[in-house]
């Protein structure tokens, strides 16, 4: 792996992705921490899923910053997981409203977050594939 590819993940458009993933890491993490600390019993499933989302976001942010082929592949796998998570949780929240007295980051396909949770993994996968092709 050459140095240009290694440092390329978080450069240019990648830098914007790092920023957005960073924001979502903070948003999902602080959301789940506050909700778990204040009233965990109210909607435990929703809060745990938000925490899972935060971990996924954090890992992708870290991979983008770190760079390199291994990190690129790991980030790609995580983006697939992220997209699967958004679609699964999004459908789940629509089908079984009773299981979610409170929203998660991925509720209704991320509608509360302007659908960015759906757009983001797709954009990131396009970028990661392109970064790998160079």
């Amino acid at each position: 792996m050459t140095e240009s590819v290694r440092s390329g993940l978080g450069r240019g458009p990648g830098r914007l992705l790092v920023w957005v993933y960073g924001v979502f890491t903070v948003a999902a993490a602080s959301r789940s921490i506050v909700q778990m600390a204040l009233h965990f019993g109210h909607a435990p499933l929703a809060y745990v899923l938000s925490a899972v989302a935060a971990v996924v976001y954090a890992f992708i942010t870290y991979s983008l910053v770190r760079g390199g082929e291994t990190a690129r592949r790991a980030a790609l796998v995580c983006c697939v997981l992220e997209l699967a998570g958004v679609v699964t949780v999004g459908t789940w929240t629509l089908v079984d409203r009773a299981a979610f007295p409170d929203a998660t980051v991925w509720s209704d396909y991320g509608m509360g977050y302007l659908f960015i949770p759906v757009i983001l993994p797709v954009t990131a996968m396009v970028w990661l594939r392109r970064a790998g092709a160079r």
Binding site: G12, P13, G14, R15, L16, V18, W19, V20, V23
Partner: peptide, 17 residues
């Protein structure tokens, strides 16, 4: 972030922020 990315993408980051 835009200080470390001296291209149009630094501007995009601030716009997103």
């Amino acid at each position: 972030v835009s200080l470390t990315e001296r291209t149009r993408w630094g501007s995009a980051t601030v716009a997103a922020g």
